[in-house]
Design a protein around this nucleic acid. Structure first.
Length: 578
DNA sequence: CGGACAAGCTGA
DNA sequence: CAGCTTGTCCGG
């Protein structure tokens, strides 16, 4: 143990400067303070929180010229995680305090308990994962219906594992399965202190990648292709990339698990793919339905393949409609009747809390449903409302929209309802016999560089919902581009080929991971990009600019040098998801 | 972010 | 030129 520190360099929390200031450590606090401690400080006459990130820095003022620390509030991230947070702030051009907060417990932790490791090493294990671990990690391509548990057990054999999953529900389910096997676990962020003390398996969503852990044998990122692993808000940090950096810093392997790995995952990594036979049995039947020369559809939105499926009353069919357009329709929450105008029958909007108004003729009425006198309305996308009628007519059985307000269960009547929803429905409904993707083209052709990646992610999600072909699972994908290579590869159950198509395209266009992009938005965008060094290339006009660099490190360093406007808005999104 | 202070604006 | 508003700077 070195001499007691006299000075603490503290990074400020919340608003204010994203800067660190030095404080004198009073004698009575020196015993309990550590690097990462969460402390209270005085700054400019205000009491604020912060993190100790360094002791006795060489460029500090003499201790007697500094203000004293007020108190130590509790435990925070350790040195490894602090380094990871600082690296992330640079990589995604965000505030350090934001990442430090992600690395801190949700509630004050006064003391960290003792480790609870078990000596169990459960079976069965995954030989492919064991091989990857021996080669310092890589990509495990696992068909969507395959269980990840054997892979996790392979990791557990090596020591404590950090498992990052996309959704909160994924985390809770996995945690209970792991606990049932007699292996000790901690679920983040709630069990931050338990994880910091030491358990066999730490599970959480993307922020868990910043968890403080006393020792670690490996890291797993499950469903690496899932968009939820990336923050939608700026800074647009991605848990996969942070996990990779954490693995590098700790010298431990990272296992990326996905049925359809992204180009970022495949980049410079060893890949373990399933046998052709396991691949085929691990996916549902995938049918590509041609919409381009199929006239059986009224309105041209349903192919004969889909209509046939809809007419089979024993099959639970879930139709996914892609998000398109932003205008909204109001539908009664109780009877689902659309809010239409009594005079001109056009749709009505809701200018304030208790009034409906007609956009066409201007007439107004209270928020009441004409059909059932219900007083509560929900928003529908115009496409969805019309589509429900079309689908019900084609199916000869009722169709119902599933959104945030409706129960996701199938009706138990003589004929099962057809369910309809936007992509979010794939997270709400847990099982179906068939998923119909009504318009994959709007996904494949979307004007974003991740369009292909997101298409594959959607298909993987849908595949998991219907299950294996042997169990009746079927995935019908409607398209007007029957020859699209991505769709052809998927219909042949060759996700390896599909991910390779996507990877090669990114490489050719120098898009991530073969280059780095930042999207700069806001009134300060023009001035900001002008102030950047020559190491980056800038494009775009007005309040929306793009910055490109050869790699994320160069981009991060350049963005850190940019002049942020004193006033006006600026959003910097590095390698954004959307 | 928000307090401090300096530079600009207004009205008698 | 006092009294107020607006802008810019900076914090240990």
């Amino acid at each position: 143990m070195t001499a007691r520190p006299n000075i603490a360099r503290v990074l400020c929390d919340r608003s204010g400067p994203d800067r660190a200031f030095d404080y004198r450590i009073p004698d009575e606090l020196s015993a309990e303070i550590t690097i990462g401690s969460i402390v209270r400080i005085d700054l400019h006459g205000r009491k604020i929180g912060g993190w100790v990130k360094e002791f006795d820095p060489s460029d500090a003022l003499p201790a007697d010229e500094l203000l004293p620390l007020r108190r130590v509030s509790g435990s925070g991230p350790d040195e490894l995680v602090i380094g990871l947070a600082e690296w992330s702030a640079q990589r995604w051009a965000g505030r350090r305090s934001q990442f430090f907060r992600a690395a801190s417990p949700p509630r004050v932790v006064r003391s960290i308990g003792t480790a609870t490791y078990s000596t169990l090493s459960p079976e069965p294990r995954s030989p492919a994962t064991t091989r990857l671990l021996a080669r310092n990690g890589g990509v495990l391509r696992l068909p969507p219906t395959s269980d990840v548990l054997p892979s996790l057990w392979s990791c557990v054999e090596r020591g404590p594992v950090l498992v990052v999953v996309p959704g909160v529900d994924d985390a809770t389910i996995l945690k209970s399965r792991v606990a049932r096997a007699g292996v000790t676990t901690a679920l983040l962020p709630h069990e931050w202190a338990r994880a910091a003390a030491g358990v066999d398996v730490v599970i959480g969503t993307r922020t868990a990648v910043f968890a403080r852990l006393p020792e670690l044998g490996s890291i797993m990122v499950i469903d690496e292709h899932d968009e939820r692993l990336q923050s939608e808000a700026s800074p647009t940090w991605h848990a996969r990339e942070v996990a990779a950096e954490r693995g590098r810093r700790s010298g431990i392997p990272l296992i990326l698990v996905s049925a359809t790995p992204t180009p970022e995952a495949l980049h410079e990594r060893v890949i373990e793919a399933p046998s052709r036979e396991r691949e085929i049995t691990g996916w549902p039947e995938i049918v590509i339905a041609d919409l381009s020369n199929d006239s059986s559809a009224p309105g041209g939105r349903l192919s004969s393949t889909v209509i046939e499926e809809l007419r089979n009353p024993s099959r639970r069919v879930l139709c996914v409609v892609n998000r398109k357009g932003t205008s909204k329709l109001l539908a009664c929450r109780s009877c689902r009747e659309l809010a239409t105008c009594e005079r001109c029958e056009s749709v009505m909007s809701q200018p304030d809390d208790d009034l409906l108004s007609c956009a066409k003729c201007g007439s107004e009425r209270p928020m009441t449903c004409l059909n059932c006198h219900g007083m509560s309305f929900s928003n529908l996308r115009p496409g969805t409302a019309r589509l429900v009628k079309e689908l019900a007519a084609a199916a000869g059985r009722p169709a119902r929209v599933v959104d945030a307000d409706t129960e996701p269960d199938w009706s138990s009547g003589p004929a099962v309802e057809v369910l309809v929803g936007t992509e979010a429905v794939l997270h709400r409904v847990t099982h179906a016999d068939t998923v119909v993707v009504l318009d994959i083209d709007s996904e494949v052709l979307a004007p974003r560089f991740r369009a292909g990646e997101q298409t594959l992610s959607l298909l993987t999600r849908a595949a998991r919902l219907v299950g294996r072909k042997a169990d009746g699972g079927r995935l019908i994908v409607q398209t007007r581009q029957i020859d699209h290579p991505l769709l052809v590869a998927m219909s042949r159950i060759a996700p390896g080929d599909a991910t390779e198509i996507e990877r090669a395209q990114r490489e050719q266009l120098k898009l991530p991971p073969y280059g780095a992009i930042a999207v700069i938005e806001g009134t300060g965008a023009a001035d900001f990009v002008q102030s950047l060094p020559d190491s980056v290339r800038v494009g775009g006009t007005g309040d929306r600019r793009q910055v490109r660099a050869t790699n994320p490190e160069v981009l991060g360093r350049a963005l850190a040098l940019g002049q942020r406007p004193a006033k006006g808005r600026l959003r910097v999104a590095v390698n954004p998801g959307r």
